[in-house]
Design a protein around this nucleic acid. Structure first.
Lengths: 345, 345
DNA sequence: GGTCCCCATGTGACCGGTCACAATCCTGGC
DNA sequence: GCCAGGATTGTGACCGGTCACATGGGGACC
């Protein structure tokens, strides 16, 4: 058949129509599964579609119908475990509904840069999902024009949830609370905390869960050490904490920080969990294989991504509207890095 | 000013035209920076654009002009470090050229599922980048219709490179060669290898680089242990190797496998690097903080992603055409996990 | 046999841009 | 004062679909 070398224009519904001897509208009906098309006609059209290798242009569809069946995910990072997993969850859910998924990386938290990126994403049409775990993400979420359908993946829900722009989140407070109680229950006098940066000026959910557990137990409240996201910062924080012989339990804002802390303790010659217990957050894939393996709190990021998409889907299509949102339940995973404090002589 | 509650249709160039008292074509000229527009006119149009909050619809642009300025990345995974970094590199380069980036995950390597995913991606318009490090990716690359612009990120270039569908790759053979030579130079009799799955039936580049180094050194060639991608498989492979007292050096197909191997050796009571040396591949962010920190070969995945985009850009726009492709140079990073073999008594 | 309706199909306009070409304006040269 | 010709601007068609409505062809029913 058509094996001309040069790239030819892909077949349109009018080409198919001509080939099948019907009008373009009939072809449109066939692709959309409209009931009132005579079976013989449908057959002919399908044959023509097959022969010409016709594929409906998503672009034209979006333009003509308004519904674009696309989501753009705005995120500051694609390589960190948590972010990547959320993205994976979104993609999974989107694919099931045959939505296209776009990504935009917020490389800087600079006001203008963020605004530009939001504009780009908005131009793509369709809905938006903003991962607002960090300053760049939070700014982006704030910069989304009011008329755009958007769902935020946030650290903590603000006091006033807007029905038109829903949010999803995990119960970080509860997670930190559980982890801290676990460490306290092992007999530690108190638990130190290496924090991830808070996305907002307010105290992060993780910090407040940690603090609540300490208060309930009447334990002293040491000042949280401000970390960042990666192992390097955890390493620095760990060195600082290793100098204080009173420190016997450390909770870290994520598993990467915990990794750095473990390394620093090792370098300082303090054994884990013999002298110091360490717990992380997220249950990244490698955490189970560290030596010592890491006690951590597992969060369902993939599920979070799926939920975010489901909500957005509800905003975009009335029919798919769902309840404001199910919070996933964090799960404490106890491994080797936590144990009773050293016996005081 | 328009603060009517209901979502109103975004402004089109004709709305802007009316507001500015010019024709829609003039507006089009202004957005595209066409030279022959009188400054005063341009001014008026720009004012109208600003006032109406006009944003040019990417959809309409793509439909009317044919050029879609979009890339879709097909990949089997978004969470693994290598994949995620490539994606990040692609996004970075694409953003610089103001291209939109879409992703499609190949969840199964099943022929039909892969074909469906390719079709979806093709429907999005624009170019394709396929990460073909695994069976699903390889199948996807093969399933891309001939008329679609596509760039493959592959493990090893095949014998016959097609000028119309370029590839990028890292020099995995060289990387494995370097790592193996490093271990041999420390005095190990030979080096065992825990392999990542090969994307094709042929021997992988990493395997052949490893083998070449052994041959050149006249070292015995043990059978590679077939691993997979994650730490769990590395763990299993590590247990197996730990049973053989002759094993004193292990090269792993990636850092995740190496992590599992380290853990298995620890469990078996064999010290690293005292009794056994271990080296990985990729230099994942956590590898430097493991205990012992991991000797590995750093590969520039982000750069690979950028190169992939650059090539695709060249295919899509004549003007941006570039040379077939620069291979990034792998870099050996020696850390604690490798050292001389134990002294034989 | 005529009317009413539903089924199957076709026609024209439109979505928001671009492209090719026509029309108008302005300026310089003679 | 008139005409050529570049600078500006406008008009109509088109990209590949959808939507709203019009049209023709059978039964079913009276």
């Amino acid at each position: 058949m058509n094996v001309t070398g040069h790239t030819r224009r892909p077949a349109s519904i009018r080409d198919v129509a001509t080939a099948a001897g019907v009008s373009y509208q009939t072809v449109s009906r066939v692709i959309n599964g409209h009931p009132s098309v005579r079976p013989t006609t449908r057959e002919r059209v399908l044959a023509a579609i097959d022969e010409l290798g016709f594929r409906r242009s998503a672009t034209a569809l979006a333009l003509a119908s308004g519904r674009s069946r696309a989501v753009t995910v705005l995120t500051a990072n694609t390589t960190h475990y948590g972010y990547a997993s959320i993205l994976q969850g979104i993609e999974e859910a989107a694919r099931a509904e045959s939505y296209a998924v776009g990504i935009g990386v917020l490389e800087s938290a600079d006001e203008a840069a963020v605004a530009a990126e939001v504009r780009r994403a908005a131009g793509a049409g369709g809905g938006l999902i903003v991962i607002a775990y960090d300053p760049a993400g939070v700014k982006a979420l704030g910069a989304v024009p009011a008329e755009l359908p958007v769902v935020g993946v946030v650290e903590t829900p603000a006091s006033t949830p807007d029905p038109g722009r829903p949010w999803v989140w995990t119960d970080d407070r509860e997670a930190a609370y559980q982890a801290t109680r676990h460490l306290l229950s092992l007999g530690h006098e108190t638990v130190h905390y290496v924090a991830i940066p808070s996305s907002t000026r307010r105290t992060s959910a993780r910090t407040s869960g940690w603090r609540q557990a300490l208060r309930e137990a009447g334990a002293p409240e040491p000042r949280p050490v401000q970390g960042s996201w990666g192992p390097a910062e955890g390493h620095a924080a760990g060195h600082e904490l290793a100098r204080d012989p009173a420190v016997s339990a450390i909770l870290c804002g994520n598993d990467d920080l915990a990794l750095g802390v473990l390394r620093a303790l090792h370098e300082a010659g303090r054994s884990v969990p013999g002298e110091v217990s360490v717990a992380g957050f997220d249950d990244a894939p490698h955490s189970a294989y560290l030596t010592p393996s890491l006690t951590t709190v597992r969060l369902d990021f993939t599920g979070l991504g799926r939920a975010a998409f489901a909500l957005l889907h509800g905003v975009l299509e009335e029919a798919a509207r769902i309840a404001p949102h199910p919070v996933s339940v964090p799960e404490l995973v106890v491994r080797e890095s936590s144990g009773p404090p050293p016996a005081t002589t």
